[in-house]
């Protein structure tokens, strides 16, 4: 259990990369990239977790009464989620244009930019 979350993070990263490398559809590749990115969420939050800790929000607990999980990694992950969403949007926009200009979204059929 002590390394399971980290292994899951590594697994997601590799799975996403494999998905991208073997993809026959650029939209699928963007989805795989999202999987790849979810590895970073899992790693960061796992690093900040504390056994028996509660969420770092003092709306219903008294300050200092219980151990808290690390709020910093949560803030980082939040930023990361936004970054992921925006990158996905931009890449999808580019895929839409690739489909328009090349008439395909299969990376094997894109025959420009060689050599």
């Amino acid at each position: 259990m002590s390394v399971l979350p980290y292994l899951v993070a590594g697994w997601l990263f590799l799975a996403g990369c494999v998905g991208m490398a073997t993809s026959r559809n650029l939209i699928h590749a963007v989805g795989s990239l999202a999987v790849c990115q979810s590895s970073t969420y899992v790693l960061l939050l796992a690093v900040g977790y504390r056994r028996g800790g509660t969420a770092p929000v003092h709306s219903d607990i008294r300050p200092g009464s219980r151990p808290l999980v690390d709020p910093v990694v949560q803030a980082l992950t939040l930023t990361d989620v936004v970054v992921g969403a925006t990158v996905t949007a931009l890449l999808l926009a580019l895929v839409v244009q690739v489909a328009k200009r090349h008439g395909t979204v299969d990376p094997d059929e894109l025959r420009e930019l060689r050599g």
């Binding site: 969420y41 939050l45 796992a46 977790y49 509660t54 929000v57 999980v69 992950t77 939040l78």
Partner: peptide, 9 residues
């Protein structure tokens, strides 16, 4: 994330 006590995320 909920079970990891990260409701914001």
């Amino acid at each position: 994330f909920t079970v990891l006590q990260a409701p914001d995320v």
